[in-house]
């Protein structure tokens, strides 16, 4: 076996990829051949350097964009009409930018009056629908994010949707019931208050009060239900009054609110 053959084997030797015979061959050869030993050393050094290269971390918007894309694809799957989402050259930068562009377009249409009224109205309706769609996508992509700030942002997107679909309402209800942070639960509850005319939302709010244990949430729910004059809230309030564990200051508050609704 000559040096050329050995050099070919050295790579595998470094990775322990050689069978016993070849391994012995290489080891024997290395003992006697200084030029191959040098090559071997060089490979070891090279591999060590490669192993020192650290992984780069992508910016966070990669994940955000992925989530937005996934939400959009899910939506497309559900409505089973394929929405063209394929980005042209640059992959979409951010949902917000798109939303901003759409808003700008709306204002352009409102300002410019070269179109007849009927078609203009139609365009605006279409754009409004687009905007809702974007907000829906943005909400769904962020609502289960690890970051509480982003979950708050998702709730705030949802709150701005004029007519949210059931999926949005369901995720808000889920967030109201369950999130690590009371802050997010309160925000979701507040967003739902805006849609309290919806029967599903109303029922969810009434049901939530029955099982809720957090004082801030209790007060918030009572406030919302009293504001919409929902009589079904009364039994839950009375139950809280009878509960020994309810702190006095909450009882005082409930008594005050009860006067408003009865």
């Amino acid at each position: 076996m000559n040096c050329k053959d050995i050099v070919n084997l050295i790579n595998d030797y470094k990775y322990n990829n050689l069978d016993y015979t070849n391994k012995t061959l290489v080891e024997e050869h290395l003992k006697s051949c200084s030029s191959c030993t040098q090559i071997h050393q060089e490979f070891i050094h090279l591999i060590d350097t490669i192993n020192q290269v650290q992984e780069e971390l992508p910016d966070k918007d990669l994940e955000l964009n992925f989530n937005a894309m996934l939400a959009k694809e899910k939506l497309a799957l559900k409505t089973s009409k394929s929405i063209a989402f394929k980005p042209k050259k640059k992959v979409l930068k951010s949902i917000l930018q798109v939303a901003a562009t759409i808003l700008l377009m709306i204002s352009c249409y409102v300002l410019g009056s070269y179109k007849d009224r009927a078609s203009k109205a139609k365009e605006i309706a279409f754009l409004k629908q687009e905007k809702t769609e974007m907000q829906t996508v943005a909400t769904l992509s962020l609502i289960d994010n690890e970051s509480a700030s982003k979950r708050l942002q998702a709730v705030s997107y949802a709150k701005d949707i004029a007519q949210p679909n059931n999926e949005i309402l369901s995720v808000l209800i889920a967030k109201m019931k369950n999130d690590k942070h009371t802050n997010v639960r309160l925000a979701a509850t507040n967003a739902l208050a805006k849609f309290a005319k919806n029967t599903m939302v109303r029922q969810a709010l009434i049901k939530a009060l029955k099982t809720e244990e957090n004082a801030n949430m209790q007060i918030e729910l009572i406030q919302i239900l009293v504001d919409i004059e929902e009589k079904q809230v009364i039994p839950s309030m009375e139950k809280l009054l009878q509960n020994k564990e309810t702190p006095n200051y909450i009882k005082d508050h409930i008594k005050l609110e009860l006067k408003q609704i009865i």
Partner: peptide, 14 residues
């Protein structure tokens, strides 16, 4: 690299 990565996952879904 970010754009390509995004595109890769888009293709996986698509």
């Amino acid at each position: 690299s970010k754009d390509i990565t995004q595109e890769v996952f888009y293709k996986v879904i698509k």
